[in-house]
Design a protein around this nucleic acid. Structure first.
Lengths: 237, 237
DNA sequence: CGTAACTTTGACAATCATCAAGGCAAGTGG
DNA sequence: CCACTTGCCTTGATGATTGTCAAAGTTACG
């Protein structure tokens, strides 16, 4: 079922990183070796704690995690979701400090990505991956700042579908959404109650169908038009 | 007056980059040379256009700019502000594409920052600068997602004060805020009318005093406590 | 079978947006 | 020096969106 699927790691040759930049044999071998030493985390564990030195970077192999910020009175905002293929904690400077905590939402496996600067092909993939991360953060800002609840949900679902597709983790127009409505609310800057109502409205409108942890977008193009969304690119050609 | 002050470039030796990492003589010389070839932009000009190849990176020397995203129906969201010392368009990968447009808010001077990879000391400063940028984007997400109008304004003003202080562009508890309330609204995900009301409430409460393009924070620490804000760090030690 | 976590529903309240109009200050041209 | 325009700030009335609180239903799982 749901969790089992999201827990299956991506085979190295089909790994998202190899989609972002062509990897030579040395890079694939290094990646393969890294993937061979996975680390397992249970749900609701910290991968990183805001303000602490970064122990080591993580390459997500399976499962969902999220960067999170918690306000003093307990309000919680998820800054972005971390999906298989994503990299966190890889910085170019000395003694980096984690800008936010990272918490696992499901069971997660990670590995330590091959070092920066060792393999040019991988460095290129890292750079593109990083640029993509930035682009998605910018998208999140526009979503929270200028979209209403319905648009936020549609836009985020399209984004997740787009990102999961890069790792072959979609099933046509559906994908596994192994999180609760409360988690979704914390990512969208809404309350769980309102997310619930909007999801029901979206189903009535034929825009989104959510059931048993699986999300279906019956007509992605129509939804993209409706919420005014363009897919995200960071390189030319 | 206001614009004149914000148009004075930062002397290289006191430049924000040299605050982020110790620069050796070679780095300072390279920076100095770059600053010697400034480019001038009038207000409301594009420094970069979303989706286009990045012509060249910019190091902001004076004035304010902003990354912006515009929705199909014209709604506008400023993603972040770009202040003197900030760098944009510097990527590690081939053929980068601009993830968002950048527009000048005031008169702006920029220069082309010295190339990546040429000087280790500068590379370190770039990396730290980039990590700071990311941290401020994350702060913007939390602001838009989970703070109310009053908190957003207070938090943003504290952030701007903190950032401008790094370049010695503050005057004690005041700083130049050379933008309109509508621009502020587009950065805060609010309407200009509501920003206006909240600014008045903030003045009545003694939290913020805005007049003739200058912002004063009578008691920054008290305000930080009130909105639950911690200052931002990206390196240990 | 029972418990805990999650989803759903309803009534009501707060926050913020919208619309429309007026005021004020700076600059422009007669 | 005075009308006139323009951009920006301010105010009021009203409404839509979203939050809050509380309770009941549902599902997963031991």
């Amino acid at each position: 079922m749901s969790l089992a699927r999201s827990a299956r790691p991506i085979p190295p040759a089909r790994h998202r990183l190899s989609r972002l930049a062509p990897l030579d044999n040395a890079a694939i071998a290094a990646l393969n070796e890294a993937i061979g030493r996975p680390q397992l985390f249970r749900p609701r564990r910290d991968l990183m704690v805001e303000g602490r030195d970064i122990a080591g970077p993580h390459l997500i192999l399976s499962g969902w995690a999220a960067r999170v910020r918690i306000l003093l009175d307990g309000r919680r905002q998820f800054l972005n979701f971390l999906l298989p293929g994503d990299i966190v904690g890889l910085y170019h400077h000395q003694r980096p400090v984690a800008p936010t905590s990272i918490i696992t939402l499901t069971e997660v496996t990670t590995c330590v990505p091959p070092d920066l600067g060792a393999l040019p092909a991988l460095d290129e993939a890292y750079a593109i991956s990083h640029a993509l991360d930035e682009a998605y953060l910018l998208a999140q800002i526009a979503r929270l700042g200028r979209m209403n609840a319905m648009e936020r949900i549609g836009d985020l679902m399209l984004e997740l579908h787009e990102r999961l597709e890069l790792s072959e983790l979609t099933h046509g127009r559906s994908f596994d959404l192994p999180i609760t409505q409360e988690t979704l609310a914390d990512a969208l800057g809404l309350t769980a109650v309102h997310v619930n109502r909007m999801l029901q409205a979206a189903r009535r409108g034929g825009d989104l169908i959510w059931s048993s942890r699986s999300m279906t977008i019956p007509d992605p193009q129509a939804l993209a038009r409706k919420v005014g969304r363009a897919s995200i690119r960071v390189t030319a050609g």
